[in-house]
Amino acid sequence: MKRRIDLPLLITLTTLALFVFVPMISAFEYSIRTPVEGGYGLTNYKWAVADEDFLYYILRSGWLSALTVLVTLVILVPTVTWLHLSDSKLRPLIDGLSLLPLVIPVVAFAVGAQISLPEFVQNTVLELPFLYFILALPYAYRALDIGLNSIPLKTITEAARSTGASWSRTIISVIIPVIRGAVMGTIALTFALSLGEYTLTVLLHWDTFPTWVTFVAQENILGAIAISMMSLIIPFILLTGITLLMPDRSAQRRK
């Protein structure tokens, strides 16, 4: 087919690009100003990265997010698999429950958590992965649900079991690889959500990378802006790069 320039698409993309990139590039220009020496430089970025808290909070947010992913997978994958296999009467109930966190504003959830969770829970930062799990639940559950719906789960499971695989082995070496697209989606989503979570974290008085940025802003606003730019632009470039480099699956599937 002839490659024509698609005018409506072009206009759409140009408008979107202006909308997204004008503020982003403006902010970037601002962040590389050096008020003391005048002109441009990476002073603010160097200052931010040199701060020892920078690495500390990145790592802290990183392992908390990794833990959230772990909690999500360990709890959800077997549960959703079982619901699909057993035709349990619980399925509509749990389907509904999993969507409930969408209804509750995070601020309200934070208040609820603060007044109800026992002290020994609130005293450890390990409460965060479980609370983040709740926040990610509507998306994670649905991603896995769709993934399992798209495969002949019963047949696959029976085949695995009939060749002598245990339940845990069936899930880990058969089901997860088959729905790896959905699992990867769940991991990416849960990780990203936990990494960027601010409201719940700050209202429960925990410090993570996002809350640290607001703390930095009080003493060096330019440094905080530099950090914000990094946390927006780096995932932006990284994820777009990965998307463009990954093989085009939909194109392969077409005959």
């Binding site: 982003m24 902010a27 809350t211 940025v213 802003a217 950090i227 927006l232």
Partner: peptide, 11 residues
């Protein structure tokens, strides 16, 4: 969230 707010402050 927060990074967005700082970005708009700068812009």
């Amino acid at each position: 969230g927060v990074p967005l707010a700082f970005m708009f402050m700068a812009a």
